[in-house]
Amino acid sequence: MSDSPRESVPVLELEGLVVRYGRFTALQGLDARFQGGSLGLLGPNGAGKSSLLRAILGLIRPARGSIRVLGRDLRRGGAALRRRVGYMPERDSWIGGVSGVAGLAHLAEISGLRRDDAMIRAHDVLHFTGLAEERYRPVATYSVGMRQRYKLAAALVHDPDVLFLDEPTNGMDPRGRVRMLELVDRVRREHGIHLIVASHLLPDVERLCDEVWVLDAGRLRMADTLERLTAEARGAKRVRLPAAAAARALAEAAGREGFEVQEGERAAEVILSRPDREVEAREVFRLARRLGLEVHGLKPAARSLEQAFVEVLEGDG
């Protein structure tokens, strides 16, 4: 584990952030704070995820509001700040006319590394991202997956404290996607680099992030931890029974006992919760035994990120 500090200052603070492209308002007064760790920006296409990333990086000037990254106001310390962040854009991006490693060393130098260090780092990160064999080839000759990994290498080459990834697995095959997520996850877990990922691929966010912001039509619809977002109710239990009739019988009895009862995804499933405390396994078994029912499965009730995401967008979150 790296000794990189998880700063006490928030990694990202937004206050009344408004971003406009001409008459179109892409972000409408965002207020949010990300203390550190890994954050997923979720939202349908056009929700404002990329605009938010680009505004944070200073690529777009906000019409109103303020952005603080690692405690620094973007308007005052933008250049110094950009030495501490790495950005993997959604579109392909590389320095033309030179080999992959030379282009990467060039970008590292621009971000403040000395010439020799920049070249060593360029080789290192290309090894790390699995592009060592291709490092002397022009990037224009790389495949889609290789270009994605090259963009990750470019974002990491100057060793940032915060890594911004915009659709990191775009266009990758399943194996390449898993490999990319592993690389990012290693950087996050083993080296303490803060991560901000914009994606419409929910499994990617579920794999990488602790915290989620859901954006829709330029507004922040929800900001919470992934754990809380996916938990149906704290301490709820999903009970699986042999048949739908058994599930109905258990639901009726549980309702009389003061449980809150919801239907599960399957007919033979029921979700039990208590408004005031966690549901204990033994009380579910006791109830089932009293009714002469056999419990086939019992586990904490959680909804998938996809369910949670849809509910938030539909206004149920």
Binding site: L57, G58, L59, A79, A80, R82, R83, V85, Y87, P89, R91, D92, S93, W94, I95, G96, G97, L107, I110, S111, G112, V139, A140, A154, H158
Partner: peptide, 22 residues
């Protein structure tokens, strides 16, 4: 003739401007 045209084609400007380059 190809300095900035090349950068526009490979979208290198995005890589430059997310660093301390204006």
């Amino acid at each position: 003739y190809d300095l900035i045209a090349g950068d526009l084609r490979s979208n290198a400007l995005e890589s430059y401007f997310c660093r301390p380059v204006t």
